[in-house]
Every structure is written in C-alpha cells, then in structure tokens.
Design a protein around this nucleic acid. Sequence first.
DNA 1: TTTGGCATGTAATCCGTTACATGATTAG
DNA 2: CTAATCATGTAACGGATTACATGCCAAA
Lengths: 214, 214
Amino acid sequence: MAGGRINQTQFALLGLLDSKPRTGYELKQLIGCSIAHFWREGWGQIYPTLKKLESEKLLTRSVVKHGHRARQVYRITRAGRARLQAWLASPVSPEVPRNELLLKLFFGGIGSGTTAGAQGNAAGTSGVERCRRQVAVYREQQERLQAGYAALEAKLRATAQGHPHLPFWLITLSYGQCRAQAMCAWCDETLKTLAEFDRAERTETRPGDGIDCK
Amino acid sequence: MAGGRINQTQFALLGLLDSKPRTGYELKQLIGCSIAHFWREGWGQIYPTLKKLESEKLLTRSVVKHGHRARQVYRITRAGRARLQAWLASPVSPEVPRNELLLKLFFGGIGSGTTAGAQGNAAGTSGVERCRRQVAVYREQQERLQAGYAALEAKLRATAQGHPHLPFWLITLSYGQCRAQAMCAWCDETLKTLAEFDRAERTETRPGDGIDCK
DNA sequence: TTTGGCATGTAATCCGTTACATGATTAG
DNA sequence: CTAATCATGTAACGGATTACATGCCAAA
C-alpha cells in the first residue's frame, strides 16, 4: 500500500521530536497514544530510521545513563527542523489506498458455486448474504471507532486543556469522526439496497456475463 | 502500506477472471476502468502473480496465436474458484492506513521557525496558514473525486444496464461518494476552525510545550 | 513511415510487518 | 521472587512501485 514512496516514517519522528528530545521507546509510546488512529509505526521502522536520520545530521543522539542502562536520546537539529518544515508545507501525495472491503463487495455477484442450483440461492451462501455480513461487520467497526474517537477527544480536552497544539489534534479526530459517521450511513443505505436486491434476485437469477470496459 | 499481509493482488485477479478468461494486459485495463477508484495494480505485480497462481493450479494458461503474437490467456480453475470463494467470505483484515494529510495537520502547531518573531505570524508561513492550504487542496481533490464517481456511475448505468452485478458495482461507487461528501463537509468545518484559531493566535502566541501522553 | 496501442515481462529498490533476541529495572 | 515494563535492536520476509527492456501490429 500504500507502499512505494519516500519514507514518511522519518517525518513522523521528526515531528514528534520537534517539541522535545526523546528515545525510540518513548516515540513508539507517543505514537501509540497520539496519532495511532491514523498512523502506526513498528520497532523495525523506528530504530533504523532514527539511525538514518542521525547519519544525515537531522538528529543528534546523546547517550544518557539511567542506572546501568544507556538510553539513546535523540534531539532534532536545525537541519532536521528545516527538513520537517519543507515536508509540512509540501503537497500531500495523492494515493489510492486499496480497499479490501470494496473489492469483496465488487465481487458480490459471484455466487458460491457449490450450492448454485435450480432452487435459487440458499440463505447464507449467496453473494448478497456474504456482502451483508461484511457490511454489518464493517458497521460495527465504524461504531467502535466512533466511540474510540469520542473517548480520545474527551481525554485530550481534559489532559491537554489550553495546549496551543490542541486544536490541531482535535482536527485529526474530527476527520475520523466525520468519516466514521458517513461510513455508518453508507452501511445502512447499502444494507437496505442489498435487502431489496435479495428479494428481486430470488425471483429471477441470470448467469453473470463478463465484465468489460468501454 | 499497507504492506505486510497476504498478497491481495491474487484475489483481484481471480475475481476478474471469474467471469471470463483474459490476458494480463486485459486485466490491467479492466482494473483501470472498473475498480481503479479503490484498487490499483501495476505490471510488476500482475504478471508474477499470474504465474504464481498458475503454478498453484488456481489458473490455467493457454497460448493463443494472434497474428504473429502469442497471447497468454488465463482461465480460472475450480480450485481457483474455491480459493476466491473462501476469500470473499473471510473477514476483512482491519487496517489503519497511514494518512499523510492528518500527520501534517497534527503538526500544524509547529511554526515555521524562520519568521517566528515578535510581530506575530506572517501570513503564509504560520502553521495555521499551512494547514489551510493543505485542507483547501484536499477539498478540491474530494470534489474532483465526487465528479469522477458521478461520471463513472452514469457510464455504468448506461453501459451495464441490467447487468446482474451492477448493483454491487454501484455500492462501491456509493462508498466513495459518501466518503467524499463527508470529507468536503469536514474540510469546511476545519477551514472555519482554522480561521477562528488564526484570529485567536495573532493576539496571544505561546511557545508550544511538549506533547506527552498519559 | 511513424506513432500509438497491444503485449509481456524483469530488475532494483524500498517500505513495512513480524518474529526473533536480549537484558535491565521496578513494582508488587 | 517474579512479572510487567523499559529499552534496544536485527533478520527475514513479502509486498508494491517504478523503471527498464523489448517488440509486434494497425492506423494515420
């Protein structure tokens, strides 16, 4: 997916290091509680990227003794800030993320083969029923997401009250809320469409001809 | 991207081959005009995947002479249909796609450094202004998407009128339409928020303290 | 005749996930 | 004491994009 472009991990790290120096571990934690709803990073990405950024002089590393342990604390440099600024102002690269759900729905007309017979589609095996289940699950997910956004918003408003960056954080949450809400509406509409189509399909079942474009 | 999971390309190909045998080239074309709004494939993915599917007996390949050329036509097998069915009925793997726009907005509070001074934020360099531009561009994109969806819907309704799979294709379009519409609404709301925040910010500018969780 | 579309592939590279591997510190 | 958390990394794997490379055929 969103796969082959310039490594964006570096900008997430630079951005989080802008406010204060941190260790890789702290960065991972911070990601998990601040931007997890739209951005994930794994260890295997964070540590190598930090090293790479250090080698490019965008970060400096200082080893801080903590008991017997040596913590690697990274601090952003002036060059790092410049790099970050340039990225922040640069246009968002347009991407068409793959959507597994839509692909499955697009193929909703493909019958289950094994039970396709003269007596029509058995309940539970038709493409329509398959799609209904997928959409129902998706709807639940979206509702859970909404609850999560609401909870995070409440926590943020309480914890970071008055923080100058708070409005921006809330904007990202609002994005998720709007989207999840719209997706729920779409689910309802789609479930209705599928139910109607189901009724119509039980009466006349034609073999699907090929898809073709143009 | 969506990176590390099981290769989904194979299912897109199996699904498109379900209705009729096709060549790799035809598959690429078909993808471009039917599911391009939520699914992309490149040559480098299609041809190797077709070979892999053939080696797994999920497809068979027949070489058809076309003038002097040899076209490799792939046909789905019974095992291929079974594999496709299993996937269609399996739950959608939950993913948290990275969102570059949101990351940039999340860092909206990071000032541009070079012009940060006593006289407040110069127009065009503040984080707020940066965000406004990003959101405005995004809004335009979403509007263009909406127009594209509408056009494709009209074309589909005309071209594939009466096709038994048409309702499913329209569902995927409706998804995009709902989302794009919601995103436009979010943009408007966000632009308003940013404008208000801008006014407030010009009066009192505090240095951003660090983000911290919990 | 030359351009554009048909047609098939390979190679390089990068991104990202997952699992593996290790060990110290601290709270219960 | 022991479990959870802090803390840092590496290795392997697989997926996706992009560019590269080639050549036929038909239409203008």
